[in-house]
Deep mutational scan, measured.
Amino acid sequence: KKIKIKIKVYNPETKEVLELEIEVSEEEAEELAKKLAEELEKKGYKIEEVEI
């Protein structure tokens, strides 16, 4: 079964909002969402919402 992940991120420095969407297997979904959120935060983005 495929799971659709939508991530909306906001960069306070540039006032930019990015929306990302990807489909992955159920097993990958939670781990991938967690890794993406961590990487984006390292780059200065503030995570507003992660929906699985």
Results as ranks from 00 to 15, higher is better:
32 L>E: 10
16 E>N: 06
50 V>G: 00
13 E>T: 12
3 I>Q: 08
34 K>N: 08
13 E>R: 11
40 L>E: 00
36 L>R: 01
49 E>Y: 15
33 A>P: 03
21 E>R: 14
28 E>P: 08
21 E>S: 15
16 E>G: 08
25 S>I: 13
26 E>G: 10
29 A>E: 03
36 L>W: 10
19 E>K: 15
16 E>H: 13
35 K>D: 04
52 I>E: 01
45 Y>T: 13
52 I>F: 09
39 E>I: 10
46 K>N: 09
40 L>S: 00
9 V>D: 00
29 A>Y: 03
10 Y>Q: 12
35 K>A: 05
5 I>D: 00
18 L>Q: 03
43 K>C: 14
30 E>P: 14
39 E>K: 02
23 E>G: 09
49 E>F: 14
26 E>M: 08
32 L>Q: 13
12 P>G: 10
43 K>I: 07
32 L>Y: 04
19 E>I: 12
12 P>M: 10
25 S>Y: 14
47 I>T: 02
27 E>I: 07
37 A>S: 13
36 L>S: 01
1 K>A: 08
21 E>C: 12
30 E>I: 05
11 N>E: 05
8 K>L: 01
7 I>G: 00
36 L>V: 07
42 K>A: 06
15 K>S: 08
1 K>H: 09
43 K>S: 04
37 A>L: 12
10 Y>R: 10
39 E>M: 08
51 E>G: 03
34 K>G: 04
42 K>H: 02
38 E>M: 10
15 K>M: 03
13 E>L: 14
35 K>E: 06
23 E>C: 12
26 E>Y: 10
37 A>M: 10
18 L>T: 05
15 K>P: 02
23 E>T: 08
31 E>H: 07
42 K>R: 08
28 E>D: 15
38 E>R: 10
6 K>D: 02
8 K>R: 13
50 V>T: 02
51 E>I: 14
40 L>D: 00
23 E>H: 14
28 E>W: 09
28 E>Y: 09
15 K>N: 10
19 E>M: 15
49 E>I: 15
33 A>Y: 08
40 L>A: 02
18 L>F: 15
18 L>P: 00
41 E>C: 06
3 I>T: 12
17 V>N: 10
37 A>C: 12
48 E>P: 01
29 A>T: 05
30 E>M: 06
11 N>S: 08
16 E>S: 10
3 I>E: 02
52 I>D: 01
46 K>S: 07
27 E>K: 04
10 Y>E: 04
37 A>T: 14
7 I>C: 02
48 E>S: 06
12 P>W: 06
33 A>N: 01
36 L>D: 00
8 K>V: 04
6 K>I: 05
9 V>L: 12
6 K>Y: 11
32 L>D: 06
33 A>C: 09
31 E>P: 12
21 E>D: 08
1 K>F: 05
30 E>T: 06
24 V>H: 05
7 I>P: 00
43 K>Q: 13
31 E>I: 07
10 Y>N: 10
29 A>C: 08
40 L>F: 07
20 L>G: 02
34 K>T: 04
42 K>T: 02
39 E>Q: 08
17 V>I: 08
20 L>I: 15
45 Y>F: 14
38 E>L: 07
15 K>T: 05
52 I>L: 08
28 E>T: 07
48 E>Q: 08
38 E>N: 12
40 L>Y: 07
17 V>L: 06
43 K>P: 04
24 V>D: 10
26 E>W: 11
40 L>V: 02
40 L>W: 13
26 E>Q: 09
17 V>A: 09
31 E>A: 11
9 V>N: 01
4 K>H: 13
27 E>D: 15
4 K>E: 03
8 K>C: 03
32 L>I: 13
35 K>S: 06
51 E>D: 07
25 S>W: 10
1 K>D: 06
12 P>V: 05
2 K>I: 09
3 I>C: 12
51 E>R: 10
44 G>I: 00
52 I>H: 02
2 K>N: 06
39 E>W: 06
24 V>N: 03
37 A>I: 15
43 K>F: 07
44 G>Y: 01
4 K>F: 11
31 E>G: 15
8 K>S: 04
25 S>P: 15
4 K>P: 01
15 K>A: 07
33 A>R: 02
13 E>M: 12
45 Y>R: 07
52 I>S: 01
29 A>G: 06
31 E>L: 10
6 K>G: 02
20 L>E: 02
41 E>S: 06
10 Y>I: 09
46 K>D: 15
21 E>G: 13
20 L>Q: 02
11 N>K: 11
16 E>P: 02
44 G>L: 01
13 E>P: 04
28 E>S: 08
35 K>C: 04
26 E>A: 11
37 A>D: 01
30 E>Y: 14
17 V>Y: 13
1 K>I: 05
30 E>K: 07
50 V>C: 08
25 S>Q: 09
9 V>T: 05
36 L>M: 14
23 E>F: 14
50 V>R: 00
30 E>V: 12
28 E>F: 11
14 T>L: 05
38 E>C: 07
14 T>W: 07
6 K>W: 04
3 I>V: 14
42 K>I: 02
2 K>V: 07
4 K>C: 14
5 I>S: 00
2 K>Y: 10
51 E>V: 15
19 E>D: 08
1 K>G: 07
8 K>M: 02
10 Y>H: 10
23 E>V: 14
24 V>F: 05
33 A>E: 02
30 E>L: 08
26 E>L: 06
46 K>W: 14
19 E>F: 15
37 A>G: 02
40 L>G: 00
18 L>R: 06
6 K>N: 07
2 K>H: 07
50 V>L: 09
2 K>P: 11
48 E>I: 12
21 E>P: 01
16 E>R: 05
17 V>C: 10
10 Y>G: 07
3 I>A: 11
17 V>W: 04
44 G>V: 00
48 E>A: 06
21 E>I: 13
20 L>H: 04
50 V>P: 01
39 E>R: 02
49 E>N: 09
51 E>W: 12
12 P>F: 06
49 E>R: 05
37 A>P: 02
48 E>M: 15
13 E>Q: 06
14 T>M: 05
14 T>S: 08
4 K>T: 13
3 I>G: 10
8 K>T: 12
5 I>F: 03
41 E>P: 01
52 I>P: 01
35 K>F: 05
22 I>E: 09
41 E>N: 04
16 E>L: 09
25 S>F: 08
12 P>C: 09
48 E>R: 03
23 E>Y: 13
41 E>T: 05
46 K>Q: 14
24 V>L: 02
31 E>V: 10
27 E>V: 11
49 E>G: 12
25 S>D: 14
1 K>V: 07
42 K>Y: 03
41 E>Q: 12
19 E>W: 13
44 G>K: 01
1 K>Y: 11
42 K>Q: 03
14 T>P: 02
25 S>H: 13
25 S>R: 14
13 E>V: 09
50 V>S: 01
47 I>K: 00
49 E>K: 06
37 A>V: 15
35 K>N: 06
2 K>C: 10
25 S>M: 11
37 A>F: 14
14 T>H: 05
28 E>K: 13
22 I>Q: 08
14 T>Q: 05
52 I>W: 02
29 A>P: 11
7 I>S: 00
27 E>R: 06
27 E>M: 14
23 E>M: 11
13 E>D: 12
9 V>Y: 15
47 I>V: 14
51 E>N: 13
8 K>Q: 02
52 I>C: 07
24 V>I: 04
33 A>H: 03
43 K>H: 08
18 L>Y: 06
